[in-house]
């Protein structure tokens, strides 16, 4: 609104104008202070966000460096062993000892198979992380996943003096997923249960229906996992300090891959463990509903 004109000698009018200016100025300053306060708040938020992003970037860079280091080690150690085996045979250290030569060559073959498996797993893991893995989802019965594993797992359990109990729900509805990937998951979880059980122990495998999920439980009573190690168990290459066994068998990629596969199937994996008491792995997978499409 335009300010009223005052007569030159009308001091009251001038005072009134000044008062109004002053009041306008105060209100403008107060608005300005509010705006500045808002800017300060948002800059505080932005600073925190920037700092979070920075920490995350540093963390990711470190994780990438660690990953490169771990993968180099995991690949180079078996390659170096195969190289050593070839050296001692080619350089004649085992001349005349054909039995030892064959034994070492067989072990070299196992190591090479381990390297190829690790590379396959890495490729799958990176595809799952990037979201480029095309998962061919179909309706699968529990038996389709677990029955082919039973013989293999029973044999592995026998070799380790462990018994297995199977309690699989009859007539449970199918789940929705890719058979080979889910076989990989359960092969990994059950063999871990066997590997980390104490001789004479038992590993229980259970599958049941709960709401619209199929719940898989694999319970062992073995060495368990220390509480501080549980948050790290899905990390690539993590192996518990007390995890025993042959390094070639468990390169630590297993559980991170399992987690990614379950995530890709919209499932949930949960691990409960007590050190020296045992571990229970629970996997919940949504049951198949007609009309669902590939993810």
């Amino acid at each position: 609104m335009k300010a009223k004109k005052c007569e030159v000698k009308d001091s009251e009018c001038h005072l009134e104008r000044i008062r109004r200016w002053h009041s306008d100025l105060e209100s403008n300053i107060s608005s300005l202070i509010d705006v500045l306060k808002e800017i300060k708040e948002s800059s505080k938020v932005a600073t925190i966000e920037c700092s979070d992003y920075y920490s995350k970037t540093v963390e990711l860079t470190q994780a990438k460096t660690t990953f490169t280091f771990e993968i180099s080690h995991e690949l180079k150690a078996p390659i170096a062993s195969v190289y050593n085996i070839l050296n001692v045979i080619i350089d004649g250290y085992l001349e005349g000892n054909r039995e030892k030569q064959i034994d070492l060559l067989k072990r070299a073959r196992v190591r090479i198979r381990g390297i190829v498996k690790l590379l396959d797993d890495l490729l799958l893991l990176s595809q799952l992380v990037e979201g480029t893995k095309k998962i061919k989802m179909t309706a699968i019965d529990i038996e389709d996943i677990l029955t082919p594993l039973i013989d293999r797992m029973e044999e592995y359990a026998r070799e380790n003096n462990i018994s297995l109990s199977w309690n699989l729900a009859n007539n449970a509805p199918p789940i929705f997923g890719q058979l080979e990937l889910l076989e990989m998951v359960f092969s990994n979880i059950i063999s871990n249960g066997i590997k980390y059980s104490n001789p004479g122990g038992i590993v229980e495998v259970e599958a049941k229906r709960e709401d619209s999920y199929i719940i898989f439980l694999v319970r062992d009573h073995g060495i368990g996992i220390k509480r501080e190690e549980i948050p790290k168990i899905f990390d690539v290459f993590f192996r518990g300090k007390y995890a025993r066994g042959d390094t070639r068998e468990g390169m630590g990629l297993g559980l991170s891959l399992v987690k990614k596969i379950i995530d890709a199937h919209h499932g949930i994996i949960n691990i409960k463990s007590k050190f020296n008491k045992g571990t229970t792995v629970t996997i919940r997978l949504p049951e198949y509903k007609k009309g669902r499409k590939n993810v």
């Binding site: 078996p78 062993s81 195969v82 050593n84 085996i85 070492l104 390094t247």
Partner: peptide
Amino acid sequence: DDDPEFVETSEIILRA
């Protein structure tokens, strides 16, 4: 070393 093949091949070489 925890790598059994490295240990065994090194032992073969060193014993020789």
